[in-house]
Design a protein around this nucleic acid. Structure first.
Length: 801
RNA sequence: GCCGGGAUGGCGGAAUUGGUAGACGCGAGGGACUUAAAAUCCCUUGAGAGCAAUCUCGUGAGGGUUCGAUUCCCUCUCCUGGCACCA
């Protein structure tokens, strides 16, 4: 018998499936739609990465399973090709982004297609194409209309290496996630999306979403909701007020001083009143010079007192000092705090250092040792005395509201999304500045605002995007009054491109609307989405935001874009993280040639549960390769008419059942194991009936599509195994075993195993168990105090002397 | 510090959600085939004791509930992801 030529077979079928449009559904007439989606790739120069590929495979195997069940499956493919990733690479090799894009997408498409994925390549989406980014820009204009896109002056992260501002989400551990450079803080006027308007909705929505816990937890932390109160402190003899946010307004009686962030606007306003203004200025300068990293790493408290000004504690009218210190951040709350040194560790340290008064207001702590936030009852707290935390918070909040000193307040860590980028490779912000009419968004009929084919596309570093230098682009007419006007020179963040691409897939060439409403109703939201969890707070948050916005525009009737989202774990090579410098990068193309794509894909799924990191080994992948070859050899045993053994038939039907169940839970690893078990049973069998062979091929087809298709056709089928409802139903009768293994336990320890009739009665089972010689030995001279029977599983006897 | 996820043979990992721990695969050892090797096939493979039937121990550690715990509860250790001088 000839050895299985997987390269030849896989090539043949992957091409034929594309030619025959086997995986191109009729979106309009589909009766039972299933939308399977993987995170579309950024087309890197290195080609398809195993991490990307793994997410594809996790989606693809489900898509094929659903297809075999007779569903209309849509698994689209496209490119996230705009953005700094590709642009930085283009800069590095000195080529135009357009040229790089054309080359890398071509390579990616080829690689994906040869892997035998069940993608619909006819509805490809590419974010860099004008027919796509027209609608990215359209989204901006709609957000602008609803006041959800706005311009503001803000302290932002400027990456000196990428020469652009970045969103907060793009800073990881204080450095730029793209290039690892240390970002600088710069005050700049930029475009923002008011994502904070949806903070609560996004938080609430998380609760009943079928998404990976790890992803939901990351989003929850990122939104960072905390409930408390806003309190206003008067400044003695002045009109000014200091507003603070606190989660513990009940500790107000313990406030002995206040601290402002160095960037707080009040400092300038009080310039004339602050006696040591020079000293204050010097401290501010020193703080500004420190990077974010230095500032948070060095937790030694520093600060300067504002001499000559005092605040008044609203609860007891006491005069308290005001300080500036770098442990208070401008970006959170109001940029000012009320300090309760007795019950806050940081305030305590600060008070100790500068010898400030400490007033205990909660019982139960040990103030000599350290500060604590306790749940003890209130002491030294005036009208709050004797109350516990919850009641005191309620009472003081009511009191503050009544006296107009403050109010209940919710604070979020989440900040608005800065979408301006001073770069070339992105969709231009569709805005026109007119001297007469002000700031206008470009009307829909004038979209897209085309990205010009300029020669000077490198970042300029002067704080403006390269487009600022392109006169033909910049100079335009005001859409309202027709007078000369200028365009916005910045482009939009790449994460906006990818925040809505799955809407576009269902009607990629629609020039009338962002997506076809009728098809949307049928196909959206996405049934299954798989991708890396590094996108938990970037892509996945923005996607939810845009989806909620489209809902508010009445274009859709759901808020959650993905019914089910699963974050896939990382693929490690021999237990280590892959990297180019270590030279241990796994290329799917390489392994596709070496062991075959069927074996590679099966191995990736077999390695472990989808969500966990798993270690890829070269010897391990041989295992699935052997399995593929073993399956191929089985075909010699197939007979047109054959009476399969009861055991083989039972195993087949049990496997059909359990593999189906595994699919519903994305437990692909155990599904593969079950299929291998079944294969081992068939290897032992004398022959296999054609009827059961076909069932067998159908259930391995999601994992080894080329192999299954090849064998399927060899046995006389004229159409693809994926062209109809070929997933078999399991036969309940065949599954049932006549005899079952019953375990007999004495005091919880297994002492014998019996083969008994499956529907034996409880009394008979216990009787049989007691009759066993082995069991008798353990029962000798003992008293049975309890008898338990678990149907079909065990008899458990509890004994004592 | 707070919030997620986790810890099972030499390795990757199973275990019907309280019922035979270690499925499946890798690796290792032994054997068959071969002049030889590779490939393939067969057997063994958690640890310890025993000629053996068999027994004891064993799911990060320690307690608890239960006839019975990898699974539930409490305490702790370590690994990992997110947030963090967050007020």
């Amino acid at each position: 018998m000839e050895k299985y030529n997987y390269n030849k077979t896989e090539k043949k079928w992957s091409q034929k499936w594309v030619e025959d449009k086997t995986f191109t559904p009729d979106l309009k007439n589909a009766k039972d739609p299933y939308y399977a989606l993987f995170m579309f790739p950024y087309p890197s120069a290195e080609g398809l990465h195993i991490g990307n590929f793994y997410a594809f495979v996790c989606t693809d195997v489900m898509a094929k399973y659903k297809k075999l069940q007779g569903k209309d499956v849509f698994e689209p493919f496209g490119f996230d090709a705009f953005g700094m990733h590709l642009e930085n690479y283009a800069l590095k090799i000195g080529e135009r982004p357009q040229a790089v894009e054309a080359r890398t997408t071509k390579n990616f498409r080829k690689q994906a297609q040869s892997a035998g994925l069940s993608c619909d390549y006819t509805r490809e989406v590419d974010t860099t194409k004008p027919e796509y980014y027209k609608w990215t820009q359209w989204l901006f204009t709609k957000l602008f209309e609803k006041d959800l896109a706005y311009q503001k002056e803000a302290l932002l992260n400027w990456c000196p290496s990428c020469q652009t501002v970045l969103a907060d989400e793009q800073i990881e551990d204080g450095i730029c996630e793209r290039c690892n450079a240390q970002p600088e803080k710069k005050t700049m006027k930029q475009w923002f999306f008011r994502i904070t308007a949806y903070a609560d909705k996004m938080l609430e929505g998380l609760e009943d979403m079928d998404w990976s816990e790890i992803t939901k937890a990351a989003q929850k932390n990122w939104i960072g909701k905390s409930e408390g109160a806003e309190v206003e402190f008067r400044i003695k003899n002045l009109e000014s007020r200091i507003k603070v946010f606190t989660t513990r307004p009940d500790t107000l009686f313990g406030v002995t001083y206040m601290v402002l962030a160095t960037e707080h606007s009040l400092i300038k306003n009080l310039k004339l009143r602050i006696k040591n203004y020079q000293e204050v200025q010097a401290y501010i300068k020193k703080t500004e010079a420190k990077s974010e990293l230095e500032r948070t790493e060095n937790k030694e408290k520093t600060g300067v007192k504002l001499e000559g000004v005092y605040a008044v504690n609203p609860v007891n009218n006491e005069k308290i000092s005001i300080w500036i210190a770098d442990y208070v951040m401008m970006g959170y709350g109001t940029g000012a705090i009320m300090a309760v040194p007795a019950h806050d560790e940081r305030d305590y340290e600060f008070a100790k250092k500068f010898d400030l008064p400490i007033v205990e207001v909660l019982s139960g702590g040990n103030i000599e040792k350290e500060a604590y936030i306790g749940d003890g009852n209130h002491i030294n707290s005036g009208f709050l005395n004797g109350l516990n935390k919850e009641n005191a918070i309620k009472k003081i909040t009511d009191w503050l509201e009544e006296k107009k000193f403050g109010k209940k307040e919710v604070n979020y860590r989440l900040r608005d999304w800065c979408i301006s980028r001073q770069r070339y490779w992105g969709p231009p912000v569709p805005v026109v500045y007119c001297e007469k009419c002000g700031i206008l968004s470009v009307p829909e009929k004038d979209l897209p605002v085309m990205l010009p084919e300029t020669q000077e596309w490198e970042p300029s570093g002067d704080g403006r995007g390269p487009l600022a230098k392109v006169d033909e682009f910049m100079n335009t007419k005001c859409p309202k009054c027709g007078e000369p006007a200028v365009r916005e020179a910045d482009v939009m963040d790449n994460f906006l491109d990818s925040a809505w691409y799955f809407f576009r897939y269902i009607s990629p060439s629609n020039s009338e609307a962002i997506f076809d409403a009728k098809l949307g109703k049928k196909w959206l939201p996405v049934d299954l989405y798989v991708g890396g969890n590094e996108h938990a707070v970037l892509h996945l948050m923005y996607t939810r935001f845009i989806t909620m916005f489209l809902h508010d525009l009445d274009l859709i009737d759901f808020n959650n874009p993905f019914k089910k989202f699963r974050a896939n774990g990382m693929i490690l090579k021999d237990g280590k993280k892959m990297s180019k410098s270590k030279g241990n990068v796994i290329s799917p193309e390489e392994y596709g040639k070496k062991v075959g794509y069927d074996a590679l894909k099966t191995y990736l799924l077999f390695l472990g549960p989808l969500s966990e990191d798993r270690s890829f080994t070269d010897t391990g992948v041989q295992g699935t390769k052997r399995w593929v070859e073993k399956v191929y050899k089985l075909k010699e045993k197939v007979l047109d008419k054959y009476d399969d053994s009861e055991e083989a038939a039972r195993k087949l039907h049990q496997t059909i059942k359990v593999v189906g169940e595994n699919f519903e839970e994305q437990k692909y690893n155990t599904a593969v194991a079950r299929l291998m078990e079944l294969t081992n049973v068939f290897v032992q069998a004398k022959n296999i009936s054609k009827e059961n062979w076909k069932k067998y091929l159908a259930i391995i087809a999601p994992f080894t599509p080329a192999l299954a298709e090849e064998l399927w056709r060899e046995f006389g089928n004229k159409t693809s195994i994926f062209s109809g409802r070929n997933w078999p139903d399991y036969d309940k009768k065949s599954i049932k075993e006549e005899t079952v293994g019953i375990v007999v336990q004495i005091n919880g320890k297994v002492r014998d195993k019996l083969k008994l009739n499956a529907d034996i009665s409880e009394a008979d089972a216990i009787k049989k168990a007691k009759e066993s010689e082995k069991v008798k030995k353990w029962l000798f001279d003992k008293e049975i105090i309890k008898e338990i029977y678990v149907k079909g599983k065990l008899v458990s006897l509890a004994v004592k002397d």
